[in-house]
Amino acid sequence: MQDLNDDALMSAYAAGDASAFEALYARHQAALYRFIRRLLGTALAAQTDEVFQDTWLRVVHARASWDPQGASFRTWLFTMANNRVIDLWRRSGREVSIEVDEDSDSGPWEPEGTAAWQHWPPPASATLPSEDLAFWRRAGERLLQCLEELPLPQRSTFLLHHDDGLPLADVASALNVGFETAKTRLRYAMSKLRTCMGAYLSPFQTSKGEAR
């Protein structure tokens, strides 16, 4: 089963092979759960299990009529999860409309230079000093906070493309928007994340308090 692609597994499951569903679940469950958790944010984190289980339940119910229509199983799976999250956001009274500045002719604001980024230590490795490991731990925590500050459309676009590895065309399909809209949302998300991270994480300080 592990050698079959998603489409073949879903077809096998539709034909009554329960082990095909188990293989699909094992392959996608971690990424899907992470996507739902980060999309819901802290305020709605308690609903993560509900959305996760409901998404897989919809896979079960749709197995006989499943028709990807050109979309991959993963895109279809994340589309269902994203739609479920949008429903929860709306029921909780949160705004999910596109920001006005996304329709502006001017591009998103870009920070001048990359001064706050140039002094960051390299990513974690087996030989990284403890203070650098602590830096990246804080950086990861801060990134999650910055993600929560993004509007939901931009957050979902960023997560699908950068965290879950979907091509931008598939992201547009999953979110039911045009390619250029998805591209614009991603550009704004990246700009805001760079600003948020750069403003918070000033040039890294060594244990002696000297900037690198």
Rank of each mutant, 00 (worst) to 15 (best):
Q2M: 10
N5P: 13
M10P: 04
A12I: 08
A14Y: 05
A14H: 03
D17W: 02
D17R: 00
A18S: 07
A18Y: 05
S19R: 06
E22R: 08
R27Q: 11
R34W: 00
F35P: 07
T42R: 10
L44V: 04
A45Q: 13
A45L: 14
Q47A: 10
D49T: 03
D49M: 02
F52M: 12
D54L: 00
L57M: 08
V59E: 01
A62C: 04
R63F: 00
W66A: 08
A71T: 13
T75A: 13
T79C: 07
M80A: 11
A81F: 02
N82T: 09
R84Q: 12
I86Q: 07
D87H: 07
L88F: 01
R91A: 00
G93I: 01
V100S: 02
V100P: 04
S104P: 15
G107H: 13
P108I: 08
E110N: 06
E112N: 05
A115T: 05
H119Q: 13
P123A: 10
P123T: 13
A126H: 13
T127R: 12
L128W: 10
A134W: 07
R138D: 14
R138Y: 08
A139V: 12
G140L: 03
Q145S: 07
Q145P: 06
E149A: 02
L152W: 04
P153T: 02
P153H: 00
R155L: 04
S156R: 01
T157W: 01
T157R: 01
L159W: 04
D163E: 14
G165W: 05
L166T: 00
V171L: 03
V177C: 06
F179P: 06
E180R: 01
E180D: 04
A182I: 03
T184F: 03
L186C: 13
L186Q: 14
Y188C: 14
Y188K: 05
A189Y: 06
T195A: 05
G198L: 02
G198N: 03
Y200I: 12
Y200E: 14
F204H: 05
K208Y: 04
E210T: 11
